[in-house]
């Protein structure tokens, strides 16, 4: 009974909380710009409306156009179930090496989304998909380096126990690196501007240009879950969650997620999207930050 209850609670956290994050980001942006901005719950309204809408499919598209977003959504959900919510709560499923499964489930989501995007034969969506899969090359290296850092710090290769980092220089470097990865993986400024209206310069938004109705809702919801996943991951990779008491840890986790989200909003308010030729430089920087975090952790553990 307890297991079922905790599973439901976890699902609720991931499914229901996730759409809040983009709302908070938009609120922060509006607040910095001195506007009122859309309500924090805007994405919930959007999702509810999209769910009721009709689907329009390109004449060229195969069933994978609809199946892709659904699979991507399910893959992200699967990845979230591997991520622990604080040291006491743990993850739904945890075993040695689950960290690699999480990375590959996110990759599966990427495959499904880009495949669905390519279904339409549109040049715009080709552009978005090409950027998405290419930037992931460096982001993936950064993620591996970050996970290796955590593994070195804790001597464990399971997410449930490896997200108990030590504080210090390594944590600072790791925070910077992972935050950059969060920005690129979730297509935020300075890699992509979700608010722009010029399709040529977009990544994620242009990939889903032809999607509509419930599949589009699945894409938006999946994207927000991915953002939440990364926010939870960043928080737990940096703060020594293990040292807090049970309730304290939950509060710290919530506050951490909030801080990360607000941070994304602030970055978005004060930075412009980078020119595409400068993106690799920033990506390389994030890889190097994670690699140096790894080296410092190594030095510390030796």
């Amino acid at each position: 009974m307890m297991i079922v209850l905790s599973f439901v609670a976890r699902l609720a956290w991931w499914l229901l909380l996730a759409p809040l994050l983009p709302g908070i980001i938009n609120k922060v942006k509006a607040w910095v710009a001195g506007r009122r901005g859309p309500p924090v719950l805007q994405l919930y309204y959007d999702l509810a409306r999209l769910w009721r809408k009709q689907v329009v499919m390109s004449t060229l598209a195969s069933p994978a156009f609809i199946v892709g977003p659904a699979v991507a959504w399910a893959a992200v959900l699967g990845a979230t179930l591997l991520v622990p919510l604080g040291p006491a709560a743990g993850a739904t499923l945890s075993f040695r090496g689950d960290v690699v499964l999480m990375l590959y489930l996110l990759a599966l989501a990427r495959f499904a989304t880009t495949w669905a995007a390519m279904e339409t034969g549109s040049a715009f969506e080709g552009m978005g998909a090409a950027r998405e899969v290419t930037y992931a090359v460096l982001a993936e290296a950064a993620m591996i380096a970050a996970m290796l850092t955590l593994a070195v710090q804790t001597g464990s290769v399971s997410l449930a126990t490896m997200l108990a980092p030590s504080v210090g220089t390594s944590a600072v470097l790791l925070a910077a690196g992972l935050f950059t990865v969060l920005l690129v993986e979730n297509c935020r400024v300075p890699f992509d501007d979700p608010a722009t209206h010029l399709e040529l310069t977009m990544i994620h938004e242009v990939m889903v240009l032809d999607h509509s109705g419930p599949p589009f809702a699945a894409i938006l919801h999946g994207a927000s879950m991915k953002l939440l996943l990364f926010a939870v991951l960043v928080t737990q990779s940096v703060l020594p969650m293990g040292t807090y008491s049970r309730t304290m840890a939950s509060i710290v986790l919530l506050v951490g997620v909030l801080i990360v989200t607000v941070g994304v909003g602030i970055v978005e308010s004060f930075m412009a999207r980078f020119a595409f030729r400068r993106v690799p430089l920033l990506l390389t920087t994030s890889v190097l930050l994670c690699v140096f975090a790894l080296l410092v952790a190594w030095q510390g553990a030796a």
């Binding site: 690799p280 430089l281 390389t284 920087t285 190097l288 690699v291 140096f292 080296l295």
Partner: peptide
């Protein structure tokens, strides 16, 4: 280029260590 020199610098730093 900037990315190659950044990588050179990073590898140099690691090698120096």
């Amino acid at each position: 280029g900037f990315v190659p020199s950044l990588l050179l610098g990073a590898f140099g730093t690691i090698a120096a260590l």
